[in-house]
Design a protein around this nucleic acid. Structure first.
Length: 282
DNA sequence: ATCCAGGAAAACG
DNA sequence: CGTTTTCATGGA
């Protein structure tokens, strides 16, 4: 079985990275093995201290997907600028942002509005099982995530079986809008952050929060700072005290928070966001 | 039952 | 124009 030995200057935590809520298609067995589908590959992987054992894809695929070549120490150091973020960095040592397939990430965050993480996971699993193709692995069946055209050519009724609720027409319309997945990904990738964000928000069901998550998790726009109810709470509690934490998150307040974060944490504020989010349950 | 969850579109004033 | 209401789903 292929193995990657992590260097001492290469911090990485598989559990934190796959558990922090950025991705919805990985499951951890009680024995420590993670199983996930990325593109058309089933990946099996586990970590024992500085050793990664894996199956399903070549080594360079793992290194790219988990951004193992990224100098994480210098990134966390760049925003380690106050006691609260410092505690989060310490608690979540080894957390990395991964490189998700963009189309699947887009659908995931359209499905994420007003939902909790287990529900998002179930919706994405439903879509893959209903519209993807079978991937056999260790005598189990996994499912790839379907192309835009596979969803565009279906009717609203069969998508309804996936329990997306009011998000069904959003996913359907976005699937119709994006005919060529690769070309779309290339186009968004070529744009600077603000322009790419504006472009994503033209899609049905994609607002500021979804756009920022997609740019952060699929396009490595690290200056993106998604603001959800948790991040808003954390920012209000530790950084900006002048909002009433019970009222609705207005567009004005969203912009206010993300601009503060960009200014306070710097060009990797999106990474800082994920550390704040991951440290929230502890 | 009521409230909430990695919100956004539509209706309203 | 900014602000409030509605939307479908399931867990706590």
């Amino acid at each position: 079985m292929p193995v990657i030995h992590l260097r001492t200057d290469q911090p990485f935590s598989l559990d934190l990275t796959l558990n922090c809520g950025q991705v919805f298609r990985w499951d951890r067995n009680p024995d420590g093995w993670w199983y996930g589908v990325v593109g058309n590959h089933v990946i099996k992987i586990r970590q024992d201290e500085s050793t990664l054992r894996f199956e399903g894809v070549p080594e360079h695929f793992i290194e790219h997907y988990f951004s193992l070549e990224t100098d994480l120490n210098s990134i966390t150091q760049s925003f380690d600028c106050d006691p609260h973020i410092h505690a989060a960095i310490t608690q979540c040592h080894g957390l990395r942002l991964i490189r998700q397939p963009a189309w699947e990430c887009l659908v995931s965050y359209i499905c994420a509005t007003n939902s909790n993480i287990p529900m998002i996971r179930r919706r994405i699993a439903n879509i893959a099982q209903r519209f993807g193709h079978v991937l056999d692995f260790e005598s189990r069946q996994f499912f790839s995530f379907p192309d835009p055209s596979s969803l565009a050519n279906t009717c609203s009724e069969s998508l309804t079986e996936c329990k997306l609720g009011y998000r069904t027409p959003y996913v359907l319309e976005t699937a119709c809008e994006i005919s060529d997945e690769k070309q779309w990904q290339k186009y968004i990738n070529s744009l600077p952050y603000e322009k790419a964000r504006h472009e994503l928000m033209k899609l049905q069901g994609v607002g500021p929060k979804a756009a920022d998550c997609i740019l952060l998790f699929a396009f490595q726009k690290y200056e993106s700072f998604p603001v959800d109810v948790w991040i808003r709470r954390i920012i209000n509690e530790h950084y900006i005290q002048n909002q009433s934490p019970n009222s609705m998150l207005t567009g004005w307040e969203y912009d206010m928070i993300r601009r503060f974060a960009r200014q306070h944490f710097g060009q990797y504020c999106g990474y800082a966001q994920e550390y704040l989010y991951a440290a929230r349950q502890k």
